[in-house]
């Protein structure tokens, strides 16, 4: 009895490897089966149903958007949109990261700067970014700058505050110790605190990417000529669910990939980061 492994139920369940894989895949399989079944039923009733396109229609949509030049624009739509969106996303999140990092670092270390900025950044952080989207479009234009600004304003307060907290969490002993090792005050900031906070920055950027995507798609949906969000909201008018599904899957994949790569970057470049927190 004692050696019997519990497969699934209870606090001490320890599923074997194969079962783990099956369990992980199960929800995906269920979703796919459910979709195919529903799609079949609808197509049996109405062969021209647009709401739940069949697999062949979706494959066709992939072909049309990803591998055929669009007749009207002369570009490969999917790649063209991806490029436009990624550019905005990356510029937006990078400027958030840089500015959030510099602000957070200085606020965490220098009481004077903290006094100057903390209340203001808390104020900005509490403005719902989408509510001021019209203001952004009016003041920065409906082109690239307005969208980048939305992503920036939506993500930088959180990054700033997260870096601030990470700096605050460095024990005072750690900093006094650096001074006794002959560090100047600048050296404390840039050679002792900075390298300890960098992995935290990557982590918080990783977590902010979710909201960055949200702001990107919202901005593109409202005013744009290209971009993944723009396309989804454009083809919605023609009820092209096939294209929408392809785009949504593609965005999900991109988001997953970014998350995965940033996680790997941390564990590869900063092997001490995740380990030291666990003890």
């Amino acid at each position: 009895m004692r050696n019997k492994k519990i497969w699934f139920f209870g606090l001490y369940a320890d599923p074997p490897v194969l079962l783990r894989v099956i369990l992980a895949l199960l929800p995906f399989v269920l979703l796919a089966v459910l979709y195919l079944a529903a799609s079949n039923i609808r197509h049996a009733e109405n062969p021209h149903d647009k709401l739940l396109p069949t697999v062949s229609k979706i494959v066709k949509a992939i072909e049309n958007t990803g591998f055929k030049k669009n007749k009207r624009t002369g570009t490969y739509l999917l790649w063209h949109d991806t490029l436009a969106s990624l550019k905005r996303l990356i510029i937006g999140i990078m400027s958030s990261a840089v500015i959030g990092f510099v602000l957070g670092l200085n606020m965490g270390l220098l009481p004077g700067i903290n006094n100057l900025l903390m209340a203001f950044i808390t104020f900005i952080a509490n403005i719902p970014p989408l509510a001021i989207l019209p203001i952004l479009f009016i003041s920065f234009g409906v082109d690239e700058l307005g969208k980048v600004m939305l992503i920036f304003l939506g993500t930088f307060p959180l990054i700033t505050r997260d870096i601030y907290l990470a700096v605050k969490k460095i024990p005072e002993e750690n900093i006094v110790k650096a001074l006794t090792l002959g560090a100047s005050q600048t050296a404390v900031i840039y050679r002792v605190v900075y390298p300890q906070v960098i992995p935290r920055l990557i982590e918080t950027v990783r977590l902010s990417l979710g909201s960055a995507w949200l702001f990107l798609i919202a901005a593109e949906a409202i005013a744009s000529q290209s971009g993944l969000g723009y396309r989804i909201f454009l083809v919605r008018r023609y009820l092209s669910m096939d294209i929408i599904i392809v785009y949504v899957c593609w965005i999900t994949f991109l988001a997953f990939l970014a998350d995965f790569m940033l996680r790997k970057l941390i564990s590869y470049k900063f092997p001490w980061y995740n380990l030291q927190r666990s003890n």
Partner: peptide
């Protein structure tokens, strides 16, 4: 000119 050793946090984790 003065060195210090604490009970904890003397070392840099990175």
């Amino acid at each position: 000119s003065i060195g210090i050793v604490y009970q904890k946090y003397s070392l840099y984790p990175h």
